[in-house]
């Protein structure tokens, strides 16, 4: 019976543990400090410092001749990003793609989430949650390349829809939107599903009981109550699309989004300060969006 812990042998370390526990039990501040030190160090040290470094490096410049970074602070990069027509065009294009992806994802996610939360049997619901989560386990790159082959000339899409006179849109913005809408869909479905799951079934019954047909029940009860969750979902699809540069490289043809500009400036152009300045655009847009939706309670649904 060697596997049975021997109480007399276990006693010393157990007693020490107990002493330590009772020492902590009366010192809530110390307890909190021990609990939060590691995550706070990571959050402040890595995340916030990196963000601050990004902001600061956007104020630097690169000597175009030597390629050396000049660390004197100037607003030139920010001015260029705000005034140059190229950046404005790419920003608007990125915004358009992010908005289109978000609209498509919400339109797809709403009925799926409603079905999962309020119609499906518990068994089917579990199966659907797994089905929604499964694509997240596959590599992002694999999915993007799968869409590349799907959308290619003579690819699966052409082969299936060709007989109906519909052709693959080919590589371009439409392909980017389709691919991104596919990739980010689970991130939109899950919060909306969770939000609708929190709406008690009796509310839907009450609406029907008081004379509202299904469509009216959904419009007057389900959607208003699920709105914060829907917005939570849009925060995901919108921000993830805004920052993407891989999909657009794979299926986007010659189009560029903000992510590409950052990427080329870090790499080929070797202009880290300008890349930092460009990277601030989506950050500012997302901060604006978050500030806008803060009042709806969406941030409590993330």
């Amino acid at each position: 019976m060697s596997s049975t812990p021997n109480p007399t042998l276990a006693a010393p370390s157990g007693a020490a543990n107990r002493r330590f526990s009772s020492f902590l039990a009366t010192r809530p501040r110390l307890r909190l400090a021990l609990f939060l030190t590691a995550p706070l160090t990571w959050l402040v040290g890595v995340y916030i410092v990196a963000l601050a470094a990004l902001l600061v490096s956007a104020l630097w410049t690169v000597d175009s001749f030597t390629g050396e970074i000049n660390r004197s602070l100037t607003l030139d990069n920010l001015k260029e990003v705000v005034t140059d027509a190229l950046y404005r065009t790419v920003t608007l294009r990125t915004l358009f793609v992010a908005a289109a992806v978000t609209v498509i994802d919400v339109a797809l996610a709403l009925p799926i989430a409603f079905f999962m939360a309020k119609v499906a049997s518990p068994r089917l619901r579990r199966a659907l949650v797994v089905a929604v989560l499964t694509p997240l386990w596959a590599s992002y790159l694999v999915k993007a390349f799968a869409w590349r082959s799907l959308l290619s000339e003579g690819g699966l899409l052409d082969w299936i829809l060709g007989p109906f006179g519909i052709h693959s849109p080919g590589y371009g913005l439409t392909a980017v939107i389709m691919t991104q809408a596919y990739i980010w869909l689970p991130y939109v479905i899950l919060p909306i599903y969770a939000g609708m799951d929190r709406v008690p079934g009796s509310l839907l019954e009450a609406a029907g009981d008081l004379g509202a047909p299904s469509a009216l029940t959904i419009r007057t009860v389900v959607l208003p109550l699920a709105l914060p969750a829907v917005i939570a979902g849009t925060i995901f699809s919108f921000s993830l699309t805004m920052g993407d540069y891989i999909t657009v490289n794979i299926v986007g043809g010659a189009n560029q989004m903000l992510g590409n500009l950052v990427y080329t400036n870090v790499g080929a152009a070797n202009n880290l300060p300008l890349a930092a300045a460009i990277a601030l655009i989506p950050i500012v847009i997302m901060l604006g969006y978050l500030a806008l939706v803060r009042r709806t309670g969406a941030l409590d649904n993330l």
């Binding site: 509310l203 009450a206 009981d209 509202a212």
Partner: peptide, 29 residues
């Protein structure tokens, strides 16, 4: 369907619509 029946229910958990005020709840039907 329930909405076709001239019958109304008072639910055990009351099932009041949390996003509407009391007047809008009562006026819903």
């Amino acid at each position: 369907a329930p909405f076709e029946r001239d019958v109304n229910t008072v639910f055990q958990d009351y099932a009041l619509f949390p996003h509407m005020n009391v007047l809008d709840n009562v006026a819903y039907g």
